[in-house]
Design a protein around this nucleic acid. Structure first.
Length: 494
RNA sequence: GGGCCGCUAGCUCAGCUGGCAGAGCACCGCCCUUUUAAGGCGGGUGUCCCCAGUUCGAACCUGGGGCGGCUCACCA
Protein backbone atom coordinates (compact mmCIF):
# COMPACT_ATOMS: atom_id res chain seq x y z
CA UNK A 1 0.00 0.00 0.00
CA UNK A 2 1.33 3.41 -0.89
CA UNK A 3 1.55 6.16 1.67
CA UNK A 4 -1.32 7.98 -0.07
CA UNK A 5 -3.53 4.90 0.11
CA UNK A 6 -2.56 4.38 3.71
CA UNK A 7 -3.57 7.93 4.62
CA UNK A 8 -6.78 7.51 2.66
CA UNK A 9 -7.57 4.33 4.57
CA UNK A 10 -7.19 6.08 7.90
CA UNK A 11 -9.23 9.05 6.73
CA UNK A 12 -11.98 6.61 5.82
CA UNK A 13 -11.95 5.24 9.35
CA UNK A 14 -12.42 8.77 10.62
CA UNK A 15 -15.23 9.35 8.12
CA UNK A 16 -16.94 6.15 9.17
CA UNK A 17 -16.90 7.27 12.78
CA UNK A 18 -18.43 10.61 11.76
CA UNK A 19 -21.19 8.83 9.83
CA UNK A 20 -22.17 6.91 12.96
CA UNK A 21 -22.42 10.17 14.92
CA UNK A 22 -18.92 10.17 16.39
CA UNK A 23 -16.15 12.75 16.14
CA UNK A 24 -12.58 11.67 15.36
CA UNK A 25 -11.29 14.94 16.86
CA UNK A 26 -12.91 15.19 20.27
CA UNK A 27 -12.24 17.81 22.88
CA UNK A 28 -13.17 18.22 26.49
CA UNK A 29 -11.67 14.84 27.35
CA UNK A 30 -10.07 14.93 30.78
CA UNK A 31 -8.24 11.85 32.04
CA UNK A 32 -8.47 11.33 35.80
CA UNK A 33 -4.89 10.12 36.26
CA UNK A 34 -1.56 9.74 34.48
CA UNK A 35 0.29 6.53 33.69
CA UNK A 36 3.06 7.39 36.13
CA UNK A 37 0.60 8.07 38.94
CA UNK A 38 -1.07 4.70 38.38
CA UNK A 39 2.26 2.89 38.51
CA UNK A 40 3.27 4.90 41.54
CA UNK A 41 0.04 4.04 43.38
CA UNK A 42 -0.40 0.39 42.44
CA UNK A 43 2.75 -1.25 41.09
CA UNK A 44 3.68 -2.43 44.57
CA UNK A 45 0.23 -3.88 45.29
CA UNK A 46 -0.47 -7.58 44.84
CA UNK A 47 -2.98 -9.01 42.42
CA UNK A 48 -5.32 -9.79 45.34
CA UNK A 49 -5.06 -6.29 46.82
CA UNK A 50 -5.99 -4.77 43.48
CA UNK A 51 -9.21 -6.84 43.40
CA UNK A 52 -10.47 -4.68 46.25
CA UNK A 53 -9.80 -1.39 44.49
CA UNK A 54 -13.23 -0.31 43.28
CA UNK A 55 -12.24 3.12 42.00
CA UNK A 56 -12.31 3.51 38.24
CA UNK A 57 -9.66 5.53 36.48
CA UNK A 58 -9.51 7.15 33.09
CA UNK A 59 -6.33 7.63 31.12
CA UNK A 60 -5.64 9.30 27.81
CA UNK A 61 -2.68 9.02 25.53
CA UNK A 62 -1.26 7.82 22.27
CA UNK A 63 -1.59 4.19 21.23
CA UNK A 64 1.95 2.82 20.94
CA UNK A 65 1.23 -0.90 20.60
CA UNK A 66 -1.76 -3.14 19.98
CA UNK A 67 -1.55 -6.85 20.69
CA UNK A 68 -4.85 -8.23 19.54
CA UNK A 69 -6.43 -11.71 20.01
CA UNK A 70 -9.68 -11.62 18.20
CA UNK A 71 -12.05 -10.99 21.09
CA UNK A 72 -9.48 -9.41 23.42
CA UNK A 73 -6.47 -7.14 23.18
CA UNK A 74 -3.67 -5.45 25.03
CA UNK A 75 -2.77 -1.87 24.15
CA UNK A 76 0.07 0.29 25.33
CA UNK A 77 -0.80 3.94 25.64
CA UNK A 78 1.66 6.72 26.27
CA UNK A 79 0.92 9.99 28.02
CA UNK A 80 3.21 12.77 29.21
CA UNK A 81 4.28 10.74 32.21
CA UNK A 82 4.97 7.35 30.64
CA UNK A 83 3.08 4.27 29.49
CA UNK A 84 0.29 2.13 30.83
CA UNK A 85 -1.15 -1.09 29.48
CA UNK A 86 -4.85 -1.40 28.68
CA UNK A 87 -6.67 -4.75 28.54
CA UNK A 88 -9.87 -4.94 26.61
CA UNK A 89 -12.18 -7.87 26.05
CA UNK A 90 -15.38 -8.16 24.09
CA UNK A 91 -17.43 -9.53 26.99
CA UNK A 92 -16.79 -6.36 29.06
CA UNK A 93 -17.99 -3.79 26.56
CA UNK A 94 -20.78 -3.18 24.08
CA UNK A 95 -20.54 -4.39 20.49
CA UNK A 96 -20.43 -0.77 19.39
CA UNK A 97 -17.40 -0.01 21.56
CA UNK A 98 -15.74 -3.18 20.35
CA UNK A 99 -16.21 -1.96 16.78
CA UNK A 100 -14.63 1.37 17.77
CA UNK A 101 -11.66 -0.47 19.26
CA UNK A 102 -11.19 -2.44 16.05
CA UNK A 103 -10.81 0.78 14.09
CA UNK A 104 -8.00 2.06 16.34
CA UNK A 105 -4.55 2.35 14.83
CA UNK A 106 -1.13 2.77 16.38
CA UNK A 107 -0.58 6.50 16.73
CA UNK A 108 -4.19 7.40 17.54
CA UNK A 109 -4.87 9.36 20.71
CA UNK A 110 -7.39 7.52 22.86
CA UNK A 111 -9.18 7.60 26.19
CA UNK A 112 -9.89 4.52 28.30
CA UNK A 113 -11.78 4.08 31.54
CA UNK A 114 -11.81 1.09 33.85
CA UNK A 115 -10.53 -0.70 36.94
CA UNK A 116 -6.90 -1.55 37.56
CA UNK A 117 -5.65 -5.12 37.86
CA UNK A 118 -2.53 -7.14 37.34
CA UNK A 119 -2.06 -9.55 34.47
CA UNK A 120 -0.69 -13.00 35.09
CA UNK A 121 2.77 -11.68 34.26
CA UNK A 122 2.29 -9.06 36.99
CA UNK A 123 1.90 -5.96 34.84
CA UNK A 124 -0.37 -3.21 36.12
CA UNK A 125 -3.15 -2.78 33.57
CA UNK A 126 -6.41 -0.88 33.14
CA UNK A 127 -9.29 -3.17 32.20
CA UNK A 128 -11.34 -1.12 29.76
CA UNK A 129 -15.06 -0.75 30.25
CA UNK A 130 -15.30 2.41 28.16
CA UNK A 131 -13.17 3.90 25.44
CA UNK A 132 -13.08 6.83 23.05
CA UNK A 133 -11.03 7.72 20.04
CA UNK A 134 -9.91 11.24 20.93
CA UNK A 135 -7.77 12.16 17.93
CA UNK A 136 -7.36 10.13 14.76
CA UNK A 137 -3.80 9.96 13.44
CA UNK A 138 -3.74 9.52 9.70
CA UNK A 139 -0.02 9.02 9.36
CA UNK A 140 1.96 6.03 10.60
CA UNK A 141 4.47 6.17 13.41
CA UNK A 142 7.95 4.78 12.80
CA UNK A 143 8.35 1.08 13.48
CA UNK A 144 8.50 -0.11 17.04
CA UNK A 145 11.90 -1.82 17.17
CA UNK A 146 14.25 0.83 15.90
CA UNK A 147 12.09 3.93 16.20
CA UNK A 148 13.17 6.90 14.17
CA UNK A 149 16.94 6.90 13.73
CA UNK A 150 17.46 8.97 10.61
CA UNK A 151 19.12 12.01 12.11
CA UNK A 152 17.74 14.47 9.61
CA UNK A 153 14.19 13.17 10.01
CA UNK A 154 14.54 13.36 13.78
CA UNK A 155 15.37 17.07 13.61
CA UNK A 156 12.96 17.97 10.84
CA UNK A 157 10.07 16.10 12.48
CA UNK A 158 11.02 16.47 16.11
CA UNK A 159 7.43 15.77 17.16
CA UNK A 160 7.79 12.22 15.85
CA UNK A 161 11.19 11.89 17.50
CA UNK A 162 9.64 12.93 20.81
CA UNK A 163 6.81 10.41 20.47
CA UNK A 164 8.96 7.39 19.74
CA UNK A 165 12.38 8.07 21.25
CA UNK A 166 12.14 8.14 25.00
CA UNK A 167 15.72 9.34 25.50
CA UNK A 168 14.95 12.48 23.52
CA UNK A 169 12.07 13.35 25.78
CA UNK A 170 14.29 12.75 28.81
CA UNK A 171 16.92 15.12 27.45
CA UNK A 172 14.45 17.95 27.04
CA UNK A 173 12.92 17.31 30.45
CA UNK A 174 16.44 17.59 31.86
CA UNK A 175 16.99 20.81 29.91
CA UNK A 176 13.90 22.33 31.43
CA UNK A 177 14.93 21.15 34.88
CA UNK A 178 18.41 22.66 34.50
CA UNK A 179 16.99 26.01 33.47
CA UNK A 180 14.56 25.95 36.37
CA UNK A 181 17.48 25.23 38.74
CA UNK A 182 19.42 28.17 37.36
CA UNK A 183 16.51 30.53 37.92
CA UNK A 184 15.98 29.23 41.44
CA UNK A 185 19.69 29.58 42.19
CA UNK A 186 19.90 33.21 41.13
CA UNK A 187 16.52 34.22 42.49
CA UNK A 188 17.56 32.84 45.88
CA UNK A 189 20.65 35.06 45.81
CA UNK A 190 18.65 38.21 45.16
CA UNK A 191 19.25 38.42 41.42
CA UNK A 192 16.51 39.92 39.25
CA UNK A 193 15.63 38.31 35.96
CA UNK A 194 15.41 40.91 33.20
CA UNK A 195 14.78 41.02 29.47
CA UNK A 196 16.76 43.31 27.18
CA UNK A 197 16.39 43.92 23.45
CA UNK A 198 16.87 41.14 20.94
CA UNK A 199 17.09 43.71 18.14
CA UNK A 200 20.06 46.03 18.42
CA UNK A 201 20.87 49.13 16.47
CA UNK A 202 24.53 48.55 17.19
CA UNK A 203 25.61 44.91 17.58
CA UNK A 204 27.82 44.55 20.63
CA UNK A 205 28.95 42.61 23.65
CA UNK A 206 30.83 39.88 21.81
CA UNK A 207 33.09 39.23 18.86
CA UNK A 208 30.77 37.75 16.26
CA UNK A 209 29.03 38.33 12.97
CA UNK A 210 25.41 39.38 13.45
CA UNK A 211 22.24 38.69 11.49
CA UNK A 212 20.87 41.85 9.93
CA UNK A 213 17.22 42.73 9.56
CA UNK A 214 15.37 45.89 8.70
CA UNK A 215 12.70 47.95 10.38
CA UNK A 216 10.47 49.47 7.71
CA UNK A 217 8.90 52.37 9.61
CA UNK A 218 12.13 53.39 11.33
CA UNK A 219 13.90 52.78 8.02
CA UNK A 220 16.98 51.40 9.70
CA UNK A 221 18.85 48.14 9.84
CA UNK A 222 18.65 46.22 13.09
CA UNK A 223 20.91 43.44 14.27
CA UNK A 224 19.73 40.34 16.10
CA UNK A 225 21.73 40.48 19.29
CA UNK A 226 25.02 38.62 19.56
CA UNK A 227 25.02 39.23 23.33
CA UNK A 228 22.96 41.15 25.88
CA UNK A 229 26.03 42.40 27.76
CA UNK A 230 25.95 46.12 27.00
CA UNK A 231 22.27 46.43 27.93
CA UNK A 232 22.71 44.48 31.13
CA UNK A 233 25.52 46.80 32.18
CA UNK A 234 23.30 49.80 31.46
CA UNK A 235 20.96 48.25 34.04
CA UNK A 236 23.82 48.12 36.56
CA UNK A 237 24.15 51.87 36.00
CA UNK A 238 20.40 52.12 36.57
CA UNK A 239 20.74 50.54 39.98
CA UNK A 240 19.72 46.93 39.44
CA UNK A 241 22.74 45.61 41.26
CA UNK A 242 22.19 41.91 40.65
CA UNK A 243 20.60 40.80 37.40
CA UNK A 244 20.49 37.90 35.03
CA UNK A 245 19.06 37.19 31.62
CA UNK A 246 18.47 33.73 30.24
CA UNK A 247 17.65 33.97 26.58
CA UNK A 248 18.68 33.60 22.97
CA UNK A 249 21.71 35.02 21.19
CA UNK A 250 22.13 34.93 17.42
CA UNK A 251 25.40 34.62 15.57
CA UNK A 252 25.73 34.46 11.82
CA UNK A 253 28.40 31.80 11.71
CA UNK A 254 28.94 28.19 10.81
CA UNK A 255 26.78 25.38 12.11
CA UNK A 256 28.53 22.48 13.82
CA UNK A 257 28.19 19.87 16.51
CA UNK A 258 28.79 22.71 18.99
CA UNK A 259 27.20 25.66 17.19
CA UNK A 260 23.64 26.61 16.32
CA UNK A 261 22.89 30.06 14.86
CA UNK A 262 20.56 30.77 17.77
CA UNK A 263 21.65 29.53 21.15
CA UNK A 264 20.72 30.13 24.74
CA UNK A 265 22.96 32.13 26.98
CA UNK A 266 22.82 32.89 30.66
CA UNK A 267 24.39 36.23 31.51
CA UNK A 268 24.50 37.51 35.06
CA UNK A 269 26.01 40.56 36.70
CA UNK A 270 26.77 41.20 40.33
CA UNK A 271 27.71 44.63 41.57
CA UNK A 272 30.56 44.86 44.09
CA UNK A 273 31.79 41.42 43.06
CA UNK A 274 35.03 40.59 41.25
CA UNK A 275 35.88 37.82 38.83
CA UNK A 276 37.33 35.95 41.82
CA UNK A 277 33.90 35.92 43.44
CA UNK A 278 32.41 34.56 40.22
CA UNK A 279 34.89 31.68 40.19
CA UNK A 280 33.40 30.57 43.50
CA UNK A 281 29.86 31.28 42.32
CA UNK A 282 30.41 29.27 39.14
CA UNK A 283 31.73 26.30 41.08
CA UNK A 284 28.74 26.51 43.37
CA UNK A 285 26.28 26.84 40.49
CA UNK A 286 27.58 23.91 38.43
CA UNK A 287 27.94 21.51 41.32
CA UNK A 288 24.49 22.55 42.57
CA UNK A 289 22.83 21.91 39.21
CA UNK A 290 24.53 18.54 38.79
CA UNK A 291 23.46 17.57 42.29
CA UNK A 292 19.87 18.66 41.66
CA UNK A 293 19.46 17.25 38.18
CA UNK A 294 21.63 14.13 38.31
CA UNK A 295 21.89 13.60 42.04
CA UNK A 296 25.69 13.61 41.92
CA UNK A 297 28.61 15.78 40.85
CA UNK A 298 30.35 13.19 38.68
CA UNK A 299 29.11 13.25 35.13
CA UNK A 300 29.91 10.77 32.40
CA UNK A 301 30.31 12.62 29.14
CA UNK A 302 30.96 10.63 25.95
CA UNK A 303 32.86 7.99 27.91
CA UNK A 304 34.87 10.42 30.06
CA UNK A 305 34.16 11.00 33.74
CA UNK A 306 33.93 14.70 34.53
CA UNK A 307 33.99 15.77 38.15
CA UNK A 308 32.06 18.95 38.86
CA UNK A 309 32.86 18.97 42.57
CA UNK A 310 34.72 22.18 43.56
CA UNK A 311 37.36 23.45 43.61
CA UNK A 312 38.29 23.41 39.93
CA UNK A 313 41.82 23.74 38.57
CA UNK A 314 43.05 27.30 37.93
CA UNK A 315 45.79 28.61 35.68
CA UNK A 316 46.55 32.00 34.27
CA UNK A 317 46.63 31.88 30.50
CA UNK A 318 50.41 32.24 30.51
CA UNK A 319 50.82 29.46 33.08
CA UNK A 320 48.60 27.21 31.03
CA UNK A 321 50.71 27.86 27.92
CA UNK A 322 53.91 26.75 29.62
CA UNK A 323 52.58 24.10 32.01
CA UNK A 324 49.90 22.50 29.84
CA UNK A 325 50.88 23.62 26.35
CA UNK A 326 54.56 22.89 26.95
CA UNK A 327 55.57 26.19 25.38
CA UNK A 328 58.97 27.73 26.07
CA UNK A 329 58.63 30.80 28.37
CA UNK A 330 60.54 33.07 25.94
CA UNK A 331 57.74 32.64 23.36
CA UNK A 332 55.42 34.43 25.76
CA UNK A 333 57.55 37.54 25.88
CA UNK A 334 58.34 38.13 22.24
CA UNK A 335 55.85 38.92 19.52
CA UNK A 336 58.25 37.68 16.87
CA UNK A 337 58.83 34.37 18.62
CA UNK A 338 55.11 33.97 19.27
CA UNK A 339 54.30 34.62 15.61
CA UNK A 340 56.85 32.03 14.50
CA UNK A 341 55.54 29.54 17.01
CA UNK A 342 51.94 30.07 15.90
CA UNK A 343 52.95 29.65 12.27
CA UNK A 344 54.81 26.44 13.18
CA UNK A 345 51.51 25.09 14.55
CA UNK A 346 49.94 25.68 11.15
CA UNK A 347 48.01 28.68 12.43
CA UNK A 348 47.20 31.23 9.76
CA UNK A 349 47.04 34.35 11.87
CA UNK A 350 43.71 36.07 11.76
CA UNK A 351 45.30 39.39 10.98
CA UNK A 352 48.82 40.63 10.35
CA UNK A 353 48.31 43.43 12.85
CA UNK A 354 47.66 41.23 15.84
CA UNK A 355 49.56 42.03 18.99
CA UNK A 356 51.29 39.54 21.27
CA UNK A 357 48.16 39.00 23.37
CA UNK A 358 45.99 37.96 20.42
CA UNK A 359 48.69 35.64 19.11
CA UNK A 360 49.12 34.00 22.51
CA UNK A 361 45.36 33.51 22.65
CA UNK A 362 45.46 31.73 19.32
CA UNK A 363 48.31 29.53 20.51
CA UNK A 364 46.29 28.80 23.64
CA UNK A 365 43.28 27.75 21.57
CA UNK A 366 45.41 25.42 19.48
CA UNK A 367 47.55 23.83 22.15
CA UNK A 368 45.85 24.07 25.54
CA UNK A 369 42.06 24.13 25.13
CA UNK A 370 41.61 20.51 24.05
CA UNK A 371 43.58 19.32 27.07
CA UNK A 372 41.26 21.00 29.59
CA UNK A 373 39.00 18.02 30.12
CA UNK A 374 38.24 18.38 33.83
CA UNK A 375 36.75 21.76 34.79
CA UNK A 376 39.52 24.36 34.60
CA UNK A 377 39.51 28.11 34.96
CA UNK A 378 41.90 30.00 32.72
CA UNK A 379 42.41 33.52 34.06
CA UNK A 380 43.97 36.79 32.96
CA UNK A 381 43.25 36.91 29.27
CA UNK A 382 45.17 39.53 27.28
CA UNK A 383 43.53 42.96 27.27
CA UNK A 384 43.74 42.97 23.48
CA UNK A 385 41.15 40.17 23.22
CA UNK A 386 39.01 41.42 26.13
CA UNK A 387 37.62 44.80 25.10
CA UNK A 388 34.97 44.94 27.84
CA UNK A 389 36.99 43.61 30.79
CA UNK A 390 38.74 45.50 33.54
CA UNK A 391 42.52 45.64 33.37
CA UNK A 392 44.53 43.83 35.98
CA UNK A 393 45.95 46.33 38.47
CA UNK A 394 49.45 44.84 38.42
CA UNK A 395 49.68 44.05 34.73
CA UNK A 396 47.53 46.21 32.45
CA UNK A 397 48.31 43.98 29.45
CA UNK A 398 45.95 41.38 30.89
CA UNK A 399 42.43 41.57 32.32
CA UNK A 400 40.68 40.26 35.42
CA UNK A 401 38.89 37.65 33.36
CA UNK A 402 38.43 33.91 33.28
CA UNK A 403 36.99 31.32 31.01
CA UNK A 404 35.89 27.92 32.27
CA UNK A 405 36.69 24.89 30.13
CA UNK A 406 35.18 21.46 30.47
CA UNK A 407 35.88 18.61 28.04
CA UNK A 408 37.97 21.03 25.97
CA UNK A 409 35.01 23.33 25.47
CA UNK A 410 34.42 26.85 26.62
CA UNK A 411 31.54 26.73 29.10
CA UNK A 412 31.72 30.15 30.71
CA UNK A 413 33.34 33.52 30.20
CA UNK A 414 33.49 36.07 32.99
CA UNK A 415 35.31 39.16 34.07
CA UNK A 416 35.43 42.09 36.37
CA UNK A 417 33.64 44.67 34.29
CA UNK A 418 35.40 47.66 32.82
CA UNK A 419 33.59 50.71 34.25
CA UNK A 420 36.08 53.44 33.35
CA UNK A 421 34.39 55.27 30.43
CA UNK A 422 37.68 56.66 29.14
CA UNK A 423 39.37 53.25 29.02
CA UNK A 424 36.23 51.75 27.45
CA UNK A 425 36.16 54.43 24.76
CA UNK A 426 39.79 53.69 23.94
CA UNK A 427 39.05 49.97 23.70
CA UNK A 428 36.09 50.61 21.40
CA UNK A 429 38.34 52.74 19.22
CA UNK A 430 40.82 49.87 18.87
CA UNK A 431 37.92 47.61 17.90
CA UNK A 432 36.73 50.05 15.27
CA UNK A 433 40.26 50.24 13.85
CA UNK A 434 40.28 46.44 13.60
CA UNK A 435 36.85 46.59 11.94
CA UNK A 436 38.19 48.93 9.26
CA UNK A 437 41.15 46.64 8.77
CA UNK A 438 38.76 43.87 7.81
CA UNK A 439 38.04 42.05 11.07
CA UNK A 440 34.28 41.59 10.59
CA UNK A 441 33.90 40.28 14.12
CA UNK A 442 35.32 43.36 15.80
CA UNK A 443 33.01 45.54 17.87
CA UNK A 444 31.40 48.81 16.91
CA UNK A 445 31.75 52.03 18.87
CA UNK A 446 28.72 52.34 21.13
CA UNK A 447 28.61 55.98 22.21
CA UNK A 448 25.41 55.52 24.19
CA UNK A 449 27.08 52.82 26.26
CA UNK A 450 30.01 55.14 26.99
CA UNK A 451 27.55 57.79 28.13
CA UNK A 452 25.96 55.25 30.44
CA UNK A 453 29.37 54.49 31.97
CA UNK A 454 29.93 58.23 32.36
CA UNK A 455 27.00 58.26 34.75
CA UNK A 456 28.91 55.77 36.90
CA UNK A 457 28.56 51.99 36.86
CA UNK A 458 29.28 50.32 40.17
CA UNK A 459 32.24 47.93 40.19
CA UNK A 460 30.83 44.60 39.13
CA UNK A 461 31.63 41.24 37.67
CA UNK A 462 29.63 39.51 34.98
CA UNK A 463 29.54 36.13 33.39
CA UNK A 464 28.07 34.28 30.45
CA UNK A 465 27.36 30.56 30.41
CA UNK A 466 26.35 28.72 27.25
CA UNK A 467 23.26 26.84 28.34
CA UNK A 468 23.12 24.48 25.38
CA UNK A 469 26.65 23.27 26.08
CA UNK A 470 25.89 22.89 29.76
CA UNK A 471 22.84 20.81 28.90
CA UNK A 472 24.95 18.73 26.50
CA UNK A 473 27.38 17.98 29.31
CA UNK A 474 24.70 17.07 31.84
CA UNK A 475 22.66 14.94 29.41
CA UNK A 476 25.65 13.27 27.72
CA UNK A 477 24.55 14.65 24.35
CA UNK A 478 27.15 14.56 21.59
CA UNK A 479 25.63 17.32 19.49
CA UNK A 480 24.13 20.71 20.30
CA UNK A 481 21.27 19.65 18.02
CA UNK A 482 20.33 17.00 20.54
CA UNK A 483 19.60 19.67 23.15
CA UNK A 484 17.78 22.15 20.89
CA UNK A 485 14.24 21.10 20.01
CA UNK A 486 14.28 22.55 16.53
CA UNK A 487 17.89 23.04 15.42
CA UNK A 488 18.56 25.10 12.34
CA UNK A 489 18.68 23.01 9.14
CA UNK A 490 19.18 23.86 5.53
CA UNK A 491 15.97 24.43 3.63
CA UNK A 492 15.04 21.63 1.27
CA UNK A 493 15.34 22.80 -2.33
CA UNK A 494 13.67 20.65 -4.90
C1' G B 1 33.69 27.05 2.63
C1' G B 2 37.30 22.24 2.18
C1' G B 3 37.75 16.74 2.88
C1' C B 4 35.45 11.90 3.82
C1' C B 5 30.89 9.09 4.12
C1' G B 6 25.61 8.42 3.30
C1' C B 7 20.51 8.88 0.74
C1' U B 8 16.41 2.06 -1.76
C1' A B 9 8.60 1.07 0.65
C1' G B 10 5.55 5.33 5.95
C1' C B 11 9.88 3.36 9.43
C1' U B 12 14.52 0.11 10.07
C1' C B 13 17.49 -2.02 6.48
C1' A B 14 19.42 -5.86 2.49
C1' G B 15 20.34 -5.67 -2.69
C1' C B 16 26.98 -9.63 -5.15
C1' U B 17 30.62 -8.33 -11.06
C1' G B 18 25.32 -3.64 -14.65
C1' G B 19 20.45 -8.28 -16.08
C1' C B 20 12.41 -8.77 -13.55
C1' A B 21 12.94 -4.09 -6.77
C1' G B 22 13.62 -7.30 -1.57
C1' A B 23 12.88 -8.45 4.11
C1' G B 24 10.97 -7.10 8.94
C1' C B 25 7.75 -3.52 11.30
C1' A B 26 3.39 -0.71 10.17
C1' C B 27 -1.24 -1.41 7.14
C1' C B 28 -5.53 -4.69 4.95
C1' G B 29 -8.31 -9.76 5.18
C1' C B 30 -9.01 -14.42 7.98
C1' C B 31 -8.00 -17.39 12.83
C1' C B 32 -7.05 -16.48 17.94
C1' U B 33 -10.03 -14.05 25.43
C1' U B 34 -3.56 -12.71 29.69
C1' U B 35 0.06 -10.35 25.60
C1' U B 36 5.18 -7.87 26.30
C1' A B 37 8.87 -7.05 19.29
C1' A B 38 2.19 -11.82 20.91
C1' G B 39 1.44 -15.91 17.25
C1' G B 40 -0.45 -18.40 12.47
C1' C B 41 -2.21 -18.01 7.13
C1' G B 42 -2.85 -14.66 2.99
C1' G B 43 -2.20 -9.47 0.52
C1' G B 44 1.49 -5.07 -2.08
C1' U B 45 3.98 -1.46 -1.04
C1' G B 46 8.42 2.20 -4.67
C1' U B 47 10.23 9.35 -8.46
C1' C B 48 15.98 3.34 -5.70
C1' C B 49 17.41 11.92 -3.64
C1' C B 50 17.38 14.88 -8.57
C1' C B 51 19.34 15.91 -13.65
C1' A B 52 22.40 14.47 -17.54
C1' G B 53 25.72 10.75 -19.72
C1' U B 54 27.80 5.70 -20.89
C1' U B 55 25.33 1.00 -22.14
C1' C B 56 21.20 -3.60 -25.66
C1' G B 57 20.12 -2.80 -20.42
C1' A B 58 21.70 1.59 -14.60
C1' A B 59 19.53 1.40 -7.61
C1' C B 60 24.63 -0.17 -9.13
C1' C B 61 29.34 3.00 -13.69
C1' U B 62 30.65 8.57 -15.02
C1' G B 63 29.64 13.99 -14.52
C1' G B 64 26.77 17.86 -12.21
C1' G B 65 23.37 19.24 -8.38
C1' G B 66 20.36 18.65 -3.55
C1' C B 67 20.00 17.18 1.55
C1' G B 68 22.30 14.94 5.76
C1' G B 69 26.32 13.00 9.03
C1' C B 70 31.37 13.30 10.61
C1' U B 71 35.65 16.30 10.31
C1' C B 72 38.75 20.77 9.37
C1' A B 73 38.38 26.08 9.24
C1' C B 74 35.35 30.10 12.02
C1' C B 75 32.94 30.44 16.71
C1' A B 76 30.22 30.10 22.22
Amino acid sequence: MSEAEYIQQRKEKAAKLRQSGGNPYLHGIVPSITAWELHHLYDARTTEELLHITETFSVAGRVMAIRAFGKAAFLQIQDRSGRIQIFLQKQDISDQLFEHYKMLDIGDIVWFEGLVFKTKTGELTVKARDLKLVTKAIRALPEKWHGLTDIEARYRQRYVDLIVNHEVKKTFLARSHIIQCIRDFFNAKGFLEVETPMMHQIPGGAAAKPFVTHHNKLDCDLYLRIAPELYLKRLLVGGFERIYELNRNFRNEGISIQHNPEFTMLEFYQSYATFEDLIKLTEELLSHIAEKVLGRTEVEYQGTMINLKPPYARYTMKESLTKIGGIAPEVLASREKAVNYALSLGDELKSKNEGLGAILTEIFELTVEKKLVQPTFITHYPTEVSPLARRNENDPSVTDRFELFIYGREMANAFSELNDPEDQAGRFKEQVDALYKGNDEAMHFDMDFIEALEHGMPPAAGEGIGIDRLVMLLTNSASIRDVILFPQLKPIRS
